[in-house]
């Protein structure tokens, strides 16, 4: 008896992100770091050549990582592996799909390849995660086929204030939509610059139709728990772990605080003796051209 299988459906792409909920996704640049992340209880790793803090420090054009590095990391861990493509660079995305990464992050952390269009993500079987700073941006990415949203924050800073701003903005815009009457949603869709059916869906359900993680500036267990208490489905930690004094310990502590985000005693205990946190940069000190969150639209 043969039963038909439907691959790459919306539901299975969004479904993988559902499986990551409550977890921490960590940026790693080597197979060894990937193993440290896996041991600490990371739910997935993001394979990169440079963490955002180094991209920021070294400047230049940031591109997709070397396939050898990505393959090496895929081979070294049993958890899902994500990798970044430049905004609009659909061939980098094709390469990553050919490498069979589990998720592609179309990311503002890399230098954009297209300042007008994002990747048409419906053309791929592999699911995409995309950054957003507000609800309209999140809905435009979902319209293009994103199966998971990551609020952007400001990557590579260790300053949680932008992550805070973006999740609060998205939450309050969703709440505002939910309180509107049906005939007000047409104008709301125009203002959000997002398709009406999707806007209506969010207004009715009171949430995004995909999982939303928070990223950009999370450096401590308390930062991670803060984002979870604000309603994040999980967190990305980029430079915060491997730019700190004791990555293995800090990684495990952030994972624990993400699971027990509502228990201050556990967060207190897990915050003890972690050594040096990443030094970080205050977002306010960054000149506008160096703000990554403003890439993408």
């Amino acid at each position: 008896m043969s039963q038909e299988k439907f691959e790459g459906t919306d539901l299975v792409k969004r479904g993988l992100a559902e499986m990551l909920k409550g977890g921490v996704i960590m940026d790693v640049v080597t197979a060894d770091q990937a193993k440290i992340a896996e041991d600490a209880g990371a739910v997935a790793v993001m394979a990169l050549e440079r963490v955002p803090a180094d991209i920021r420090a070294q400047g230049g054009v940031a591109r997709m990582s070397d396939p050898d590095l990505i393959q090496d990391i895929i081979d070294s861990v049993s958890i899902p592996v994500m990798a970044k493509a430049r905004i609009g660079h659909f061939v980098e995305a094709q390469v990553l799909e050919a490498l069979e990464v589990d998720y592609i992050d179309e990311s503002e952390v890399l230098s954009p390849a297209d300042y007008v269009n994002h990747i048409d993500k419906w053309k791929f079987n592999v699911p995409f995660v995309c950054g957003a700073t507000n609800l309209g941006e999140a809905l435009r990415r979902i319209t293009e086929g994103a199966a998971m949203i990551r609020s952007k924050g400001e990557a590579g800073t260790g300053d949680v204030s932008e992550a805070m701003k973006h999740i609060r903005t998205i939450n309050s815009e969703i709440a505002a939509l939910s309180s509107k009457s049906e005939d007000e949603l047409y104008v709301a869709a125009k203002e959000l610059q997002a398709p009406y059916p999707l806007v209506k869906e969010v207004a009715q359900s009171g949430k995004l139709p995909v999982v939303m993680f928070v990223a950009g500036g999370i450096a401590t267990p308390a930062d991670a728990a803060l984002m979870m208490q604000l309603g994040a489905d999980g967190v990305f930690v980029g430079s915060g772990i491997f730019k700190s004094g004791d990555p293995a310990k800090r990684a495990a502590a952030i994972v624990r605080a993400t699971t027990y985000y509502n228990d201050p005693k556990v967060i207190a205990e897990t915050s003890r003796g972690l050594g040096e946190a990443m030094v970080g940069i205050n977002v306010g000190d960054l000149p506008a051209p160096h703000r990554l969150a403003e890439r993408g639209w």
Binding site: K5, V12, P80, P127
Partner: peptide, 12 residues
């Protein structure tokens, strides 16, 4: 297979 081969189906 990996995520690209994830699927929906009817099970009996």
């Amino acid at each position: 297979g990996g995520q690209t081969h994830s699927f929906e189906a009817e099970v009996e």
